[in-house]
């Protein structure tokens, strides 16, 4: 599948699996899981540094080198457009002018459901400032289209709530979003296990972004490997084009003639 490249903001990627770097036991586990997943784009959060800590303390960047992976700084924990914009301006400075970002503006701390009104407003400003915005949103096809029209470079609807592992709750909405979109559609949030990722890819999603499904598995390294295969297998099945479902008429796979009598 070398030719089936995935294009985000003008850059080609071989892997359609995007992964988060949170919730792992330690940086070593983060590094091994991400390596097993085959992901090339990794999300990171931007947070205040601890003042007065050990100068030799390990940092995420030592384990997930910026030269090897495309960093996707996020706005996790931001509930207003202003906080999200401020976070991403700092991220751009931190990552030496890097413009590719993941925008998420949350609406509620219990569900982490996106506030799409604030998200749209933040996206407009960020795009004006030259950011390439991959945007986390609900599975509302109208909002998804609006975000694309504003100029977001990827639309990332939830499959279900962040960290819930509930899988794809509304495949039909995702299909509408995919059918209407001219930019990549990436399912972000809610995937729980490999079959969820396969379904997302079979629906025609361009990629899947996940964190908890890998990090919170009993064996994150093995789950990362499973997700890599799931994404590839779902993508190939989508490209292959599935057979039509026939509910009332069976069609034998073996010849009907030449049976012994």
């Amino acid at each position: 599948m070398e030719s089936d490249k995935f294009l985000i903001a003008g850059k080609h990627y071989l892997s359609r699996l995007l992964v988060g770097t949170g919730k792992y036991k330690d940086f070593k586990e983060t590094q091994t899981a991400i390596s097993e997943s085959g992901a090339e784009i990794v999300t990171v959060a931007i947070r205040r540094t601890n003042i007065g800590q050990d100068i030799k303390e390990e940092s995420l960047l030592d384990f997930i080198p910026k030269e090897k992976y495309t960093y996707l700084p996020n706005t996790a924990g931001c509930y207003t457009k202003d906080d999200a914009i401020r976070t991403l301006r700092l991220a751009r400075e931190l990552l030496d002018g890097h413009n590719l970002v993941k925008l998420e503006v949350l609406g509620d701390p219990n569900t982490l459901y996106p506030n799409v009104v604030e998200t749209v407003e933040a996206a407009k400003i960020l795009i004006k400032e030259g950011f390439d915005v991959m945007v986390y949103t609900s599975d509302d096809p109208i909002i998804a289209k609006q975000l694309e029209d504003i100029g977001c470079c990827a639309i990332m609807p939830l499959a279900s709530l962040i960290g819930s592992g509930m899988g794809i709750l509304n495949p039909h909405n995702l299909e509408i979003i995919i059918d209407n979109a001219k930019v990549p559609v990436i399912v972000d949030a809610g995937v729980g296990t490999a079959s969820d990722a396969v379904i997302a890819m079979e629906l025609g999603c361009d990629g899947v972004l996940m964190n908890t499904a890998i990090a919170a598995a009993d064996n994150p390294i093995l789950m990362a490997a499973a997700m890599k295969k799931a994404i590839e297998s779902g993508r190939e099945a989508f490209l292959a084009g599935r057979m039509k479902k026939k509910f009332y008429q069976a069609d034998p796979s073996s010849p009907t003639s030449g049976l012994i009598k």
Partner: peptide, 10 residues
């Protein structure tokens, strides 16, 4: 002053 770094996140 706000001084920030990149940390693990999803």
């Amino acid at each position: 002053l706000e001084i920030v770094i990149a940390v693990g996140g999803g």
